[in-house]
Amino acid sequence: MGQIVTFGEIMLRLSTPEHSRILQTDIFEARYAGGEANVAVSLAMFGHQAHFVTRLPENEVGEAALQSVRRYGVSTDYILRGGDRLGIYFLESGASQRPSKVIYDRADSAVSQMESNMVDWDAIFDGKDWFHWTGITPALGEKPRKAVIAACKAAKNAGVTVSCDLNFRSKLWTEEEAQATMNPLMEYVDVCIANEEDAQKSLGFEAGDTDVEGAELDDEGYSTLARSLKKEYGFDTVAITLRESFSASMNGWSAMLHDDKDCKEPVRSTRYEIDIVDRVGGGDSFAAGLIHGLLTKDNTQDALEYAVASSCLKHSIPGDFNLTSEEEVEKLVKSGGSGRVER
């Protein structure tokens, strides 16, 4: 198994119970979550040595966040302590035609005030195989932006494979800010993970006539997008998630992958129809599954099938973390997933 580093923010997630609205609830369910933390937990569940880099306040809330990833086997050796607060996000879980909503309360969080020289990136990447980051981290401000650049440079110098999930967040920065930052960072990336919105808003590339909200996918548009991204930035691998949003409760879920290992054209995965329990973290579980697949599988198609099946299972689990084992994912890949009770 691999030695994998992720870098980003972990937050306190406060979600409404049983699809209630923020306006009506008197209680919130508390969990800890964040894109790169989610990936680290999933990879640890698959048997890899996952290392999470972040900065947490030195108080009980920070300690609880640290323990939330440590309990699933993530190494916390590179987590810094300091800063005034942990970021928070509020989640109102949608249902049917009412979408889920996220409200951020993360200004001046500990990681957003993290200087790049607080971390010895060269030491962190010594002996490691993979580095994963997302577009969320540089969106947090100038200091984490510089830290991402320093981390990417150190990873490349160490010969470490670098993956990036573009993860555009309109509540954190504008398209212009995202493209000005993300385009130069792509020179360090080997594996790019995106959906059609991320590619358009973070990098300025469009995916044909796809209408996600109308649940219509333009396969040729996605294939062209994958080829264009690979050609423009020289990525080894481009993975694009394909979500058909019939409603907040029902989605079609599949993905496309383009690399030079086994195919000259993008390959498409199995498609799953998902009755959603919790959609948040679905993209992160795909990223973790893809990293696992690329590290352990013999061919492109198998790596993609593992990633999509992993993410499919995550949609059935409350919270951001994908608490599934390698065995469970493999079983879904082979069986197609009847959902029958195991006795």
Rank of each mutant, 00 (worst) to 15 (best):
A158L: 06
G159Q: 08
V160R: 05
T161P: 01
V162P: 09
C164W: 09
L166Q: 12
N167W: 12
N167A: 07
R169F: 10
K171L: 14
K171S: 15
L172Y: 03
L172T: 05
E176N: 09
Q179F: 04
Q179E: 14
T181C: 14
T181P: 06
M182I: 12
M182E: 07
N183H: 04
P184Q: 01
L185K: 02
M186R: 02
D190M: 05
V191E: 04
V191R: 03
C192V: 15
C192I: 13
C192T: 11
I193M: 14
I193T: 06
I193C: 12
A194P: 12
A194G: 07
A194L: 13
N195H: 12
N195Y: 09
N195E: 10
E196P: 15
D198E: 13
D198P: 15
D198Q: 11
A199Q: 01
Q200M: 15
S202C: 14
S202N: 10
L203C: 03
F205W: 10
F205E: 07
F205Q: 10
G208S: 00
D209C: 11
T210V: 08
D211R: 08
D211M: 02
D211W: 00
V212T: 14
E213F: 11
E213C: 07
G214E: 04
G214F: 05
G214R: 05
A215E: 06
A215G: 08
L217W: 06
D218F: 06
D219A: 14
D219H: 11
E220A: 13
E220K: 09
G221N: 08
G221F: 07
L225T: 01
L225M: 01
S228W: 09
L229R: 10
K230H: 09
K230F: 04
K230A: 13
K230Q: 15
K231N: 11
E232H: 07
Y233C: 02
Y233T: 05
Y233A: 11
G234C: 01
F235T: 04
A239K: 02
A239G: 10
A239C: 06
A239Y: 02
A239T: 11
A239E: 07
A239N: 05
A239F: 02
I240Y: 01
T241C: 11
L242R: 04
R243H: 01
R243G: 00
E244W: 00
E244R: 10
E244Y: 01
F246R: 01
A248D: 06
A248F: 02
S249R: 01
M250D: 10
N251Q: 03
G252L: 05
W253S: 01
S254F: 00
M256D: 01
M256F: 00
L257N: 03
K261D: 06
D262H: 12
D262K: 11
C263A: 14
K264V: 14
K264C: 13
E265T: 08
P266N: 08
R268V: 12
R268D: 04
T270P: 12
R271E: 12
D275A: 15
V277Y: 06
R279I: 07
V280T: 15
V280E: 12
V280D: 07
G283P: 00
